[in-house]
């Protein structure tokens, strides 16, 4: 069991074996570390890869952000921030594999992105776009498990079906780790900023999130809400327990929750349309 875990970890930390990380992102990483580099410079680098740009723009125009008219990479960087564009560049490379053959997980991810954005706005939190991105990427570990060990994935799905347990429990049983941890390894190996990495790593265990607990709590609640609405599918069909610490961190109450449910359900209709369009492309 422990072997599987360390094997998987090794193969994820070794970026070479992962789905190709476009060279653009490496350049972007080094540029965004440098405080003197300008948005124009970074946009130019991204724009040099046309397929990647198209993918980023498509995600930037998704209901998760609600701008709809992001037509250039420079615009996307100004509206969404460099961190988000960088993460979208990474996400779109991974999601490219997922869009066609795992529509349900893709819908779930987009739904959580939308819900996270709505929650963050409702509570007046800063950096809504980053929170939405963390929501969009929160289950990235599942995609990696699927790519890296497809036989294990079948076992996991089988276990969920026969024993009616959560995906998380099934994953721990089969590969001795779970998608949250895999997601955390991935965000380290791809230098995703901590504010995205933490919600990905701890969206099932908010208490462990120390530096960005509010963001993690939003993603946790967004995940639960989307599971409750039954939109998309992320493996199992069970609503996970809402963690008290997340509820308290965000100071939620019944009234707020009722308003959020209404707003999210309203927006999910758009998400559905967006997914259908992506499928038909």
């Amino acid at each position: 069991m422990a072997d599987k875990r360390s094997d998987l970890k090794k193969s994820i930390m070794d970026t070479k074996t992962l789905p190709t990380l476009p060279s653009v992102i490496r350049k972007l990483n080094s540029l965004s570390d440098n405080e003197k580099s300008s948005v124009q410079e970074m946009a130019k680098i991204v724009s040099s890869d046309q397929v990647l740009s198209a993918r980023i723009l498509r995600l930037a125009n998704s209901p998760s952000y609600g701008f709809y008219r992001v037509s250039t990479i420079t615009n996307a960087m100004i509206l969404l921030g460099v961190n988000v564009v960088k993460s979208l560049a990474i996400a779109s490379s991974i999601f490219a594999a997922m869009e066609k053959d795992n529509v349900c997980l893709w819908e779930h991810s987009l739904g959580v992105g939308v819900a996270a954005n709505l929650i963050a706005r409702k509570l007046g939190l800063p950096e809504c776009e980053e929170i939405a991105t963390a929501g969009l990427l929160h289950d990235i570990g599942k995609v990696i498990i699927r790519i890296k060990c497809s036989t294990a994935e079948n076992d996991i799905l089988g276990l969920i079906h026969t024993r009616q347990i959560y995906t998380l429990e099934a994953e721990r049983e089969v590969i001795d780790t779970d998608h949250a941890e895999v997601g955390a390894w991935l965000s380290k190996s791809w230098f995703l900023p901590e504010k995205l990495g933490e919600p990905i790593a701890f969206h099932h265990d908010v208490a462990k999130s120390e530096n960005y607990r509010t963001k993690t709590a939003v993603v946790h609640i967004a995940d639960v809400l989307i599971k409750a609405s039954g939109f998309g599918n992320s493996g199992d069909n069970f609503v996970p327990p809402i963690q008290q610490i997340a509820w308290d961190t965000l100071q939620l109450n019944e009234q707020l929750l009722a308003e959020l449910v209404e707003e999210i359900e309203d927006k999910l209709i758009e998400v559905k349309t967006f997914c259908l369009e992506m499928m038909s492309d």
């Binding site: 959560y166 639960v224 809400l225 599971k227 409750a228 609405s229 039954g230 069909n237 069970f238 609503v239 996970p240 327990p241 809402i242 008290q244 509820w247 019944e254 929750l257 009722a258 449910v261 209404e262 359900e265």
Partner: peptide, 22 residues
């Protein structure tokens, strides 16, 4: 069906009722 595991948890019960009402 979706709430079968968690409807007894107090916070999830709130969510369940909210969704049902919705």
């Amino acid at each position: 069906g979706r709430f079968i595991k968690t409807f007894r948890e107090p916070l999830n019960a709130i969510l369940y009722n909210t969704y049902k009402a919705y």
